[in-house]
């Protein structure tokens, strides 16, 4: 495995009970870059994303085969603690899901559960600044997080994920519930964050994948309704000269 690889997936199969949702995926995710996962609905890209930090453990009936190596260690080994993995591989969800607490407490929560000792106020400020939200909320940190707009809430969720200082951030269609302006703010943020973090982002929006990502992976649904990886390459190449015909058909909008 090359040094630039942070997550390496080998022969990953995901099942919900008897149904195979994702079939035989191999993928290398490069450090401090943005990898976009695109593909039609039901192709298993969200399911796949949730395997990368063991969020699928929480779904009843979900099971996996294969390996997800994070810094050369299989995160599904029996001696690996899922909470450790999730604190190092954070996640941002499709719908902004701040806790019904104050803005401050939303960020402090992750620090507290991970046993943070230090200057909490400074840590909160730093996280909010990284998520480009500080200037908008610095005067009302004690207001409920629900008083923020949808886009602000999503940036709060990103700040919340950053506070724990993960190495990787998984984003599951983070802008799909937002208006175009809020979407642009999230995209700007993703581009900024990749200098310090590795980002894997699932998106329905191909322009978004083209705008923010360095690498793109294209997923498809097979005849048996299982999702599989068609190809993964430089975003530039996927969008201009993909290897597979199905990829070209998808990105040119011939099917969706």
């Amino acid at each position: 495995m090359a040094d630039s690889t942070v997550i390496s997936v080998k022969g990953l199969n995901v099942y919900y009970e008897d149904f195979q949702a994702v079939k035989d995926v191999d993928m290398e995710i490069k450090r401090e870059s943005v990898t976009a996962l695109i593909g039609p609905s039901g192709c298993g890209k969200s399911t796949y994303l949730r395997c990368l930090n063991r969020m699928n453990d929480l779904i009843m009936g979900a099971s996996i085969q294969g390996e997800v190596l994070f810094e050369n260690r299989n995160i599904y080994d029996s001696n690996v603690d899922a909470t450790e993995i999730r604190s190092r591989i954070g996640m941002v969800f499709q719908k902004p899901n701040p806790f019904p607490k104050s803005i401050y407490q939303n960020i402090a929560f992750g620090l507290k559960v991970n046993g943070f000792s230090g200057d909490m106020e400074e840590a909160v400020e730093k996280s909010l600044k990284q998520a480009a939200l500080w200037d908008e909320v610095k005067d009302r940190l004690n207001d409920s997080a629900f008083t923020l707009s949808g886009g602000q809430q999503q940036r709060l969720c990103i700040a919340r994920a950053l506070a724990v200082e993960p190495e990787v951030i998984l984003m599951d269609e983070p802008a799909s519930a937002l208006d175009p302006i809020a979407t642009l703010a999230i995209e700007d943020l993703v581009r900024e964050l990749k200098t310090d973090y590795t980002i894997v982002i699932v998106t329905h929006n191909m322009q978004q994948a083209a705008r923010v990502s360095d690498e793109t992976a294209f997923f498809m649904v097979g005849e048996d309704r299982s999702g599989y990886l068609v190809e993964q390459d430089d975003t530039q190449k996927i969008f201009t000269n993909p290897t597979h015909q199905r990829t070209e058909e998808y990105i040119t909008g011939r099917f969706s």
């Binding site: 909470t83 929560f109 559960v113």
Partner: peptide, 13 residues
Amino acid sequence: DSYRQGAYAMGAD
């Protein structure tokens, strides 16, 4: 459930 997911995603047990 999104509250639970959010908390788990930050490494809470």
